Deep mutational scan, measured.
Amino acid sequence: TCPLCKTELNIGSKDPPNFNTCTECKNQVCNLCGFNPTPHLTEIQEWLCLNCQTQRA
């Protein structure tokens, strides 16, 4: 489950994953609780959960 919103993560499912791993804290959170803060920078593959995003802001 997502630590932030308690959504079930579909780990091991044949569906596309509905979660990602935060590059900062390494927690697995669902796609609604994390995002790529710099989608225009292709050389930085970063994906932050809302916790890390808030701490950085």
Rank of each mutant, 00 (worst) to 15 (best):
N20S: 09
P3V: 04
N20D: 15
V29Y: 09
P16L: 08
H40D: 13
W47E: 12
C52T: 01
N36F: 12
E24K: 10
L4Y: 08
E46D: 03
T54A: 12
L41D: 11
V29C: 12
L32F: 11
N20Y: 04
K6H: 07
G12K: 05
L9D: 07
H40L: 10
I44C: 12
T1W: 03
N27P: 04
I11L: 05
C33H: 13
T1L: 09
L50A: 14
K26C: 10
Q28I: 02
C33T: 00
T54H: 09
C22H: 02
S13I: 05
N18Q: 09
L48K: 05
N51Y: 05
T7F: 04
P17R: 08
S13M: 11
L50G: 13
T1C: 12
F19G: 10
N18R: 09
T23I: 06
K26P: 07
I11H: 13
N10D: 05
N20M: 15
L50P: 15
W47I: 09
C2H: 01
L48E: 07
C52N: 00
G34R: 08
N18V: 04
G34C: 11
S13G: 02
T42G: 14
L4T: 09
F35Q: 15
C25Y: 02
T42P: 07
P39D: 07
L9M: 14
T54V: 06
T7A: 09
I11P: 14
L32N: 06
L9I: 08
E43G: 11
K14Q: 08
K14F: 03
T23R: 10
T23V: 13
C5F: 00
E43I: 04
F35D: 15
G34P: 02
P3E: 04
E24L: 03
L9R: 06
K6E: 09
T54D: 12
N18Y: 08
P37I: 12
C22D: 01
N27T: 09
C2N: 06
C22S: 02
C52R: 01
K6C: 04
W47K: 08
K14W: 02
C49P: 03
S13N: 07
T7K: 12
C5W: 00
H40E: 09
D15A: 07
C25N: 02
L4E: 04
D15Q: 11
N31Y: 11
Q45F: 07
Q45L: 08
S13A: 03
Q53I: 05
N36E: 14
E8F: 03
C2R: 00
C49D: 02
C2Q: 00
T54Y: 03
K6A: 08
H40W: 05
I11C: 07
F19Y: 12
T7R: 09
C33K: 01
N10W: 01
L9N: 06
I44S: 12
N36P: 07
L41P: 10
N31H: 14
Q45M: 10
N51K: 09
E46A: 06
L32G: 15
T42V: 13
C30V: 02
N20G: 13
P39S: 13
E24S: 07
C30E: 02
L4F: 03
T1E: 07
E8W: 02
N31V: 12
K6W: 01
C33Y: 00
N36R: 12
C33E: 04
Q28H: 05
C49A: 02
F35N: 13
P39G: 05
C52K: 01
T54S: 11
E24V: 11
T54N: 15
N18C: 05
I44R: 07
W47G: 13
P3G: 07
C49I: 00
L48C: 15
W47Y: 03
N18A: 06
G34N: 00
V29A: 09
L50E: 15
C2L: 00
Q45D: 05
G12Q: 04
C5M: 00
K26T: 15
I44Y: 04
Q53M: 03
L41Y: 13
N20K: 14
N27F: 03
E43Q: 06
K14L: 02
C30G: 02
C2W: 00
T54Q: 15
F35P: 15
N20H: 08
H40V: 12
F19Q: 15
T23Q: 03
C49T: 00
T21L: 08
L32V: 14
C49V: 01
N10Y: 03
N20I: 07
T7L: 07
P39L: 11
N27K: 10
E43D: 08
N36M: 12
T23N: 04
P17E: 14
Q45G: 12
N27Q: 14
C2G: 00
C5I: 00
Q45A: 08
P16W: 02
P17S: 06
T1I: 10
C25F: 01
L50T: 15
T42I: 08
W47M: 09
G12I: 14
W47N: 03
L4H: 12
P17I: 03
L4D: 15
C2V: 00
D15I: 11
K26R: 13
N36H: 15
L50W: 05
C2P: 00
N31G: 12
N36C: 09
D15N: 12
P16Q: 08
N10K: 15
T21C: 12
C5G: 01
T42L: 08
N36K: 13
F19T: 10
N51Q: 08
I44F: 14
Q45P: 07
I11N: 12
L9Q: 07
E43R: 14
T42C: 13
N18W: 04
P16Y: 09
P16V: 03
N18E: 08
T23C: 12
P3L: 04
C2E: 02
K6D: 04
Q53N: 14
I44W: 04
T42E: 07
S13L: 05
E43Y: 03
L32K: 15
L41H: 05
C22T: 01
D15S: 09
V29E: 06
N31Q: 11
N51G: 08
Q28R: 11
P16T: 03
P39Q: 14
Q28F: 06
I44T: 04
P3H: 11
C25G: 01
N18S: 07
Q53Y: 05
K6R: 04
C25V: 02
L50D: 15
F19K: 01
C22R: 03
F19V: 05
T7Q: 12
E46H: 06
H40P: 13
N31D: 11
K26Y: 14
P39E: 13
T23H: 06
Q45W: 15
C25I: 01
K14M: 07
C52F: 00
P3M: 09
C22A: 02
T7H: 06
P16K: 05
P17H: 03
L48S: 09
I44N: 07
P17W: 06
H40C: 12
C25D: 01
S13Y: 05
D15F: 11
C49H: 01
L4R: 09
E24I: 08
P37Q: 14
K26V: 13
T7C: 02
C30K: 02
C33V: 01
N36I: 07
Q45V: 12
L32A: 14
T7I: 04
P17T: 03
Q45H: 03
L41S: 12
N10R: 04
L32M: 07
T23K: 10
L4I: 09
Q28T: 10
V29D: 04
P39H: 03
E46W: 03
C25P: 02
S13H: 09
E8C: 02
Q28E: 06
C33R: 01
L32E: 15
N27C: 15
T54R: 14
Q53P: 15
T1N: 10
P3A: 05
T42F: 02
Q28Y: 06
G12Y: 07
N51S: 05
S13F: 07
F35H: 15
C30W: 00
I11Q: 13
